[in-house]
Design a protein around this nucleic acid. Structure first.
Lengths: 222, 222
DNA sequence: TACTATCGGAAAGGTACACTATCCAAATGC
DNA sequence: GCATTTGGATAGTGTACCTTTCCGATAGTA
C-alpha cells in the first residue's frame, strides 16, 4: 500500500506519518521509483504501536524512538532487551532528589528482592521511586514509604498475570518483547483506572451513603 | 515571609511563583502595602503540592487548577468532593474511541461493582479504560481485557492500603481530601515503579539466568 | 538619610514539542 | 491527457510552561 492507504487504515494523517518517518519512528517504505514507496502490514502495525505509545503511554517522540530501537535491537539477550525497553518506556523525573529519599528508594529495591545485573543507581525505576518519596516527604507524608509493602503485594499478582499473558500469546522472541511493551504501557493505564474505581467504590461504601441516597433520589425524580 | 523566601524554601524560582499566582494555582499573599505581600506556611504547603502534581503527577497547569478548586470547594459532601478531585487528577485521553471498546469498558465497570451515583458515561476512568481496550484491540491484543481480573485483585489490596493510610493520618475533612490527592498521585507513580521492578525480577528469574551469570562474572572481574 | 537589594505586578519574550502546511517535480490511474 | 497522489524538503503553527525585562515602590542597612 502507499502512504495514503496507510493513513486511512491507521487514522493517522499523512503529514504526521511523514513526520514519523523523518523522526525514525517508522522504517521507510520500499521505493519502487525515486518518488514512490510501498508500505506493508508491518508498517501499519508499527504505526499503531507508535500511536499507542504516544496516546495511551504518553511517551515523547524520543522515548518512542528509544523503545523501538530497543525492540529492534538483535544483538542482545532477551533479558537485557527487556531491561532496555523497560528503561525506554519508564518516565524518569528530572527533579532534584534529596539524598535521604534516594537512599530509601535504593534500600527498598535492595530489600524487595535481589536483582542480579540490575543497576540500581542509574535505573529510571529507582529515580522514580526516589522522586515519589522525596515529594511525599516535602508534603509531610514521611510515612508514605510504609505503604509500599501493599504495593508490592498488589503488583506481585498483577506482574504474574502480565507475564502469564505475554507467555500465553507470544510466539517468538520479538513477540515477547513487543507484547511486554504493549502490556506494560496499557497495563499502567489500566492499573490507574482500576485503582480509581476501587477508590470510588471504597468512598461510596464508607462515606457516600447519604450522598448516594441523595443521588438515587434525584434519579428517581426524573 | 516574602516571595524570595518562599522561593528559597520551595526551590521554585520567583518568576515561576509569580506565574502560578497569575494562573491561580496559589492564593495571593496578604498585601502589607500596595507592592509588598506576605506569604505563610499554607502558601509553602500549597506550592509544594502544586509542584508534586506537576512533577510527579505530570498534571497540566489547568488540571492542577481543577484539582485545587475541587479541594478548596466547601459546599459539597466529602464523597462528591473526592469524586471531583479524582476526575481532576485523572488524565482523560482525547483519542477517538471505538464503540466496541466503550461498551467493554462500561460493562467492566458495571460488573466490577455497583457504583451508586457514579456517572459511567462521562467519567475519565471509563474513557481511560475504553482507550486502553481500544488500543489493545488495534494492536491485535483483543484478549487484553481478560487481564483486568488480576488488576482488580491487585488494586483491591492497594486501594485498601490507600484508604487505611488516609484515614490513619487525616485529622480533618480537608485533610482527607488532600491526602487522597497526594496518595493517588504518588501512588500512581509508585505502582508503576513497583510493577517495573516485579517485571524485572520475573524476567531475571525466568530467562535471565545466563545473563545474570554473565553479569556476575563481569562483576567478579573488577 | 543615602543606598542597595528586593518587592509586586504587568507585558513581552523564549523554548520545546508535536505536528501541519506548502511547495515541487515525478509518478499513478482512469 | 490530466487530475490526483506521491516522496521529500522546508517552513510554519499552536500549545504549554515558564523567563526576561521593566517599572516604580518598599525594606533593610549604614
Amino acid at each position: 500500500m502507499r502512504i495514503g492507504e496507510l493513513s486511512k487504515r491507521s487514522g493517522v494523517p499523512v503529514p504526521t506519518i511523514k513526520y514519523y518517518l523523518r523522526e525514525g519512528l517508522l522504517p521507510a517504505g520500499v521505493l519502487t521509483s525515486p518518488n514512490q514507496a510501498h508500505y506493508d502490514e508491518s508498517h501499519l502495525r508499527r504505526l499503531r504501536l507508535v500511536r499507542a505509545l504516544i496516546d495511551v503511554g504518553e511517551l515523547s517522540i524520543s522515548s518512542v524512538r528509544d523503545a523501538l530501537s530497543a525492540i529492534d535491537a538483535s544483538d542482545e539477550s532477551l533479558h537485557v532487551k527487556l531491561g532496555q525497553v523497560q528503561e525506554a518506556i519508564s518516565r524518569a523525573p528530572s527533579t532534584p532528589l534529596d539524598d535521604e529519599s534516594v537512599r530509601e528508594a535504593e534500600a527498598f529495591i535492595a530489600q524487595y528482592g535481589p536483582l542480579e545485573g540490575y543497576d540500581i543507581e542509574c535505573s529510571g525505576v529507582s529515580r522514580m521511586l526516589a522522586a515519589v518519596l522525596s515529594a511525599a516527604r516535602s508534603l509531610g507524608h514521611d510515612k508514605f514509604g510504609e505503604n509500599l509493602g501493599a504495593y508490592v503485594e498488589g503488583m506481585r499478582i498483577i506482574a504474574e498475570a502480565d507475564i502469564e499473558y505475554v507467555m500465553r500469546r507470544a510466539t517468538s522472541v520479538d513477540d515477547v518483547v513487543e507484547s511486554m511493551v504493549v502490556g506494560t504501557i496499557l497495563g499502567d493505564a489500566a492499573m490507574i483506572a482500576v485503582r480509581r474505581l476501587a477508590h470510588a467504590q471504597e468512598s461510596a461504601k464508607r462515606i457516600g451513603d447519604s450522598a448516594a441516597r441523595a443521588s438515587a433520589a434525584r434519579e428517581g425524580e426524573r
